[in-house]
Nucleic acid binder design. Structure first.
Lengths: 247, 247
DNA sequence: TCAAAAGTGTTCTTATTACACCCATGG
DNA sequence: CCATGGGTGTAATAAGAACACTTTTGA
């Protein structure tokens, strides 16, 4: 194998873009680096992949060490391998994003977590390494996936109002949605359970609470179904450029 | 840096799923392995990433060494890193797919290319390593991208008929399309140029030839536009599960 | 009684689907 | 003159977009 020895000198890491939703904002969990390189800069949580660990395993480990959460939504997005992206040597990183219910998040005792903080995505500036680019890729992927699959619920508490849900979509898609059309669509999908409870202690008419019916979704998927969310912009008569096959 | 030395013992590769379209079939270019491991098995073209090379560069190199083609459509899909996926050690691989016009493909003199062959995607069986899984991921990605962007044209010769185009979509999407609706949609997108030529020497009414207007597409993109291709199945009144925000 | 957010229907426009016959050519 | 695939339109249905007022609560 000596002919290949020279290739076995690189390392790889995972970096995890952990999204949460709170106070009407999409947020991301960042860590303030306490060591070189990029000391003092905000960075994505990540670490080297251990020799006996696969990629998803490493991403889950990073997430759990930081937040204590297991079994949350996690998706591989893209791998970044610019030659000089890491000063220690050739390090390529596999970027993941995960979706957590921000209230489930408990700061872990691990020292690294002491420096973790939620940042509104819209206010994140420069980051260490190429993490800004990684964040952007994950945001874009989230935006497109959230239209195709009911991921939004991963970010909300188990009980939520339709307005919560609408605000979540508005934050992710960076758009505004029509309240009546949104509700009509969501309810027509028949994936929400009316909990027959309402908010309490709000200074306005209390909203009904719902939960996502995951079992039903799984059943619908099995029947071959698509959850799809389209754009909706039609500012000045957007031309139709959709191509629709007619099986 | 000694604390991290143990991590710098892995290697990474790129594997390239090269798609082409010919005789009504979606095809993939595979190589018959002439050495261990998996000697004699069909595999995806791929190789180690050189120390001074980024990932896209390596994928382009693999493609060019094999086919002589440069500047073809190439897209990173997913990274595979199961611990034992390669017998030589820890090797993770970044999977790409590329789209080539099969007639542009010239067998290169490189020895590796001697063993290359186009296989109809539907007839590919077991492959070396985890390459079957990689192929499946790339196929799935192609299927979803082809609905969102006009990638199909990358697989056709510069001049083509509407029937060619329809057959291409049918092959990729594994479905049948209605001829009239397909043409109506495609032509309404205003991305094809009527070349005012027709086929010659066919034993039926000759079809008109078109080309894809790439410049126009670029302009439309700049104006913010979406090329979108939807499913169209409605066998027994498929329920509407699309969620459409109304900005 | 006021402020604040919840909740609710209809109309218009656009997109999607289903569907059948005549046309041009080579053999 | 036949076989082959090319080419064309319309009507019915479904989805998407626009839009404003009443309700319920706490302060």
């Amino acid at each position: 194998m000596t002919e290949f020895d020279s290739f076995f000198k690189s390392a790889f890491t995972v970096d995890n873009v952990i999204f949460g939703f709170d106070e009407g904002d999409l947020k991301v969990l960042l860590i303030k680096r306490g060591e070189a390189p990029y000391m003092g800069k905000w960075a994505l949580p990540g670490y080297f992949v251990y020799p006996n660990e696969d990629l998803d395993g490493a991403a889950n480990r990073v997430l759990e060490e930081l937040t204590g959460l297991r079994k949350v939504y996690l998706e591989q997005v893209k791998t970044f391998g610019a030659v000089d992206r890491h000063p220690f040597g050739r390090v390529i990183t596999v970027a993941y994003f995960s979706l957590v219910k921000i209230n489930d998040y408990k700061l872990q005792p691990a020292s690294i977590a002491q420096k973790a903080q939620w940042h509104p995505v819209s206010k994140v500036g420069e980051l260490a390494f190429d993490h800004r680019e990684i964040l952007d890729s994950c945001l874009e992927r989230l935006k497109s996936l959230v239209r195709l699959r009911p991921l939004g619920f991963e970010l909300l508490p188990p009980h939520f109002t339709l307005t919560d849900l609408q605000h979540l979509y508005e934050a992710i898609l960076e758009t505004e949605l029509d309240k009546r059309n949104f509700r009509k669509k969501i309810l027509s999908m028949d994936l929400l359970v009316d909990l027959r409870q309402t908010q309490e202690g709000v200074a306005h008419r209390p909203a009904k609470l719902y939960r996502f019916d995951r079992d039903k979704y799984v059943r619908f998927q099995a029947e071959g179904f698509n959850f799809e969310l389209k754009e909706g912009k039609r500012k000045e008569s957007r031309r139709n450029r959709e191509l629709a096959p007619a099986l």
